[in-house]
Design a protein around this nucleic acid. Structure first.
Lengths: 192, 192, 192, 192
DNA sequence: TATGAATGAGTATTCATTCAT
DNA sequence: AATGAATGAATACTCATTCAT
């Protein structure tokens, strides 16, 4: 009860502290003692919750990745037409990236720098499965180009990482209309 | 002469060593002494060529960014039609990312993690100017959608980073036909 | 009863765990948490049975020393002739060192490194009293050289520590005949 | 010259500091930072001279072992009669153990606790070769009992470790006559 | 009695940087 | 211009011990 609750809270405080530190200064700034200080625990306490630094980062990655996918497929039902479904998912993701900027940036960092180990990476990829299936259906129906999943992803989802990037978002704020624009570009790139 | 030449070579050896170390293990693996060892100089020598570690990385970034832009606009002439020109530049970039994978990955890492300071980042962006002008021309001519440069970039150039990514490229090798496919997607996303 | 029994068992499990850890890796490997884990209790539990780490080691020393002396004087009766008695004790000790190698090695470690505090050391020495008295008798009878107890010990009992040492025993296995040999050497060194 | 000299002195200061710390409190008291402080250098400096802590201790062991053997065989000539030669070596060793008590105790600690790795141990044993050869000669001549080297060592050299032990030497000071006594015991134990 | 969680002080080691030569 | 040696401060991680339950 109270104890378990506190334990969970501490774990989450540690993950959050790590996320924030990595986000603002890269791993180089996310030393275990800084993480501890920010989470208001002793350095030794971290090791009650995580095996070591790599484990802490891996777990953070999986944690964030899961929260991301939950949002991504929120309200998604398999029965709807492909474009409608895709639109739903795309906006879900865009929304996540805009509102949970810290998490989104962290994921980008993980995708482009060797922060996370291969196994966690592979684990993290699984979450996308429903989207891949949707694309397959679109291709069967002749709506979506016959391109590999990687290319489809590169032209529809990946660009969002750029647009919601901390640096970029300063100059290029995504409002409702520019978001519609971006979706149109995404769809145009893959639709037949 | 010989002396100056040697000096230049040493500087380049240092930059290359840094690039390789960062690429294979992130900044965490690129300690000054490792850089020195890999470049076969004394740690103290690095400080004759660079102010400090941050400066070394900034200079490396600018260096790579410049080599990248040189390739990107190689053979590009302003007179040609917009699509032809864009195609030229796009394939140049794709080519660079495929053949100079190390450099490309390093740039991705810099774009997504706080390795490089803001000033260098801004400096690095300048190189894209000709492409932005080309897009402006395309928009005047009514060929390219009226979207911000950021969006145009996100849907045409940025996806290449994903497709040539070390991890991804294992599963998704870009041969001639899939590259054509990818270009088509890029163009479809921004053409009117 | 059952409860007391369990308590005693736990104490012994702790002592045994400590012995094994120290034996295989020195005190450096015998951290309180490792001891706890090996004895299958919580670290905090150790402090119910022992004041602190030093106390744990002291108590272990005294414990082992006592078990050692029990064996050493097993079957020893004061009435028998000096040589016979000495032989009995010597073989008792040799036997202990061979069969209880772990305990023997631990004692050697304690005798040569500052693991145990002075008081426990002094306490441990008391157990030898009967042997010292036997020697005194031997000297009175003119059978044993008039040397200090320390020298007598050094040439009769102490060598056994070397011969049963973990490292040495690999190369030099003590069988019945070599044991006889060794006893002869011991006796020759002190007999008049 | 001056530089090399200073370097050698620093290395020796480190070895000496380690020796003293281990001697007075065991390895547990010989932390790298304490060693550094006692040797009046920065902790980082240790790593310019030794790979890591284990290496530091191994090197110290070999160093001391070498100085020990040098003394042990000082003035020893192969031509002399076996007993004379043995006497020479025995008193050399006794002398070393009495005058260089710190070194002697350290060696004892190494022989009885897992401080030093196996390879260094093996390396250290080589130094005894001349003594083993002397014994072999004594056995050929029918002067020394046909016992294994280990037993011969256990009854002649090893007892010295006990007698010169820090604790023991307080109660049992080895003066000239008691030393003669001890030698006699050693010889009696192995002579035919 | 017994514990899991917690911790400040400590561990071995590496860091970016400087300095005498 | 170039270096090897040096370092204080930092690194990830572990320790012996305590405490609320």
């Amino acid at each position: 009860m109270a104890k378990l609750q506190k334990s969970i809270e501490k774990r989450e405080a540690l993950l959050e502290a790590t996320l924030n530190l990595i986000n603002s200064g890269g791993i180089q700034e996310a030393s275990m003692s800084k993480v501890a200080k920010l989470a208001k625990v002793s350095p030794a306490t971290i090791y009650l919750y995580f095996e070591n630094k790599q484990d802490l980062i891996n777990k953070l990655y999986l944690d964030v990745k899961e929260s991301f996918s939950k949002k991504a497929f929120e309200g998604y039902e398999e029965g709807l037409p492909v474009k409608k479904s895709f639109e739903k998912i795309w906006f879900n993701i865009a929304n996540y990236k805009i509102t949970q900027r810290a998490e989104a940036c962290f994921l980008s960092q993980c995708d482009n720098a060797p922060l996370v180990d291969m196994e966690s990476r592979r684990e993290g990829l699984k979450h996308l499965q429903p989207l891949l299936e949707l694309w397959a259906r679109g291709q069967e129906e002749g709506i979506i180009k016959e391109m590999s999943n990687y290319v489809l992803y590169a032209y529809t989802i990946y660009p969002l990482a750029f647009l919601t990037n901390t640096e970029i978002s300063v100059y290029c704020q995504l409002n409702k209309s520019s978001l519609e624009e971006a979706f149109q570009a995404a769809w145009d790139s893959i639709k037949v």
